[in-house]
Design a protein around this nucleic acid. Sequence first.
DNA 1: CTTAAAGTAGACAGATTGGTCTACTTCTGT
DNA 2: ACAGAAGTAGACCAATCTGTCTACTTTAAG
Lengths: 188, 188
Amino acid sequence: MDKREQLVRAAFRLFYEQGIHAVGINLVLQETGIAKKTLYHHFSGKEALVAAAIRHRDDTYLAWLSQRLGSVPSGESAILELFNALDDWFHDRVPEIDHFRGCFFINASAEYGDRNSAIHQACAEHKAKVAELIRSHVEAMSVSEERVEDLARLIVLLKEGAISVAHVQGNLDAAREAGKSLQGLLGG
Amino acid sequence: MDKREQLVRAAFRLFYEQGIHAVGINLVLQETGIAKKTLYHHFSGKEALVAAAIRHRDDTYLAWLSQRLGSVPSGESAILELFNALDDWFHDRVPEIDHFRGCFFINASAEYGDRNSAIHQACAEHKAKVAELIRSHVEAMSVSEERVEDLARLIVLLKEGAISVAHVQGNLDAAREAGKSLQGLLGG
DNA sequence: CTTAAAGTAGACAGATTGGTCTACTTCTGT
DNA sequence: ACAGAAGTAGACCAATCTGTCTACTTTAAG
């Protein structure tokens, strides 16, 4: 396999498991068995590797989520499927997106707290894409047009809240609870 | 002032601003002008200092929040005040809890991702206290007893979601939006 | 077949990390 | 007054960090 790809995958996994600042370049090299020179041939430095790991996760995660939401009729069922998907993620039933350790983008933003940093901005862009994906499914629901934005925002808040509660508190059922809450709000 | 207290305050501020792994012990010493020996007299190591910083933030934050929620009649108005307080925090109108950089406990949990770690557990305990504070105010609302838990959970999810969206996305109005959503759900 | 790109191992550099230690001074309670 | 706790400055240590470099080998394309 492409050495660059190997490095990015290993870097992502380690950064996600242990934190970015806690993982040194040498560990990534050791895990992959790739030479240091090769890493610095592909990346200008650690920060470029971090950026690549983020882009990698952006791709993987969005592919997974949009596939899940696309597997049911668009609209309300897709929104409920969102919380099913999160539930699967929290309970490690989705091998292709790794053992749950919270949201990689939230975690990375914690370490790169300055909103002007390139890393933080890449995280914000990922979140904007996910929000847009959700909004597009809300648009397909039978709600008045002017409520679409409000409802989409509410769903995003519930989703982000569930991720945070699941990780920090260890309440892995947070997504199911959020989904039930939402269902109650929509149905009743 | 007590040297120990000075160290904890400076450590918290630096950890919150720059991240825990990104801040070395020497920076804390430099900022406070305190000798290294003194730090190691009070703390067994960096991790103990981190733990103290978390306890410090736990105290400060909970004191601030419960005071805010206690400043209005308990019940629905206290819950709405919660989102006013968050809005003030996000917009840096609360000097005593420092320039907004997301939730320190979420950020720390990102760096100490293992839920068995003492640091992560301390963060979870803080969140449990805040959730209990919220639950106690929901209990004072005019909702059927069996809905108290569900409503409290919903509010916690909205709050955590707002913090995450405000920090990662930079949408500092997330709390106001969350509050409006909730008001709509309660009133309509 | 040749040539350039991509790869290897690993020594090395300079900075920084958390933490220890010595020798000395200041503060505080009895 | 005096003992012990708490403080000081900063040298020092071993480990680790990112990043550079040399010298050599493999791989792939024209």
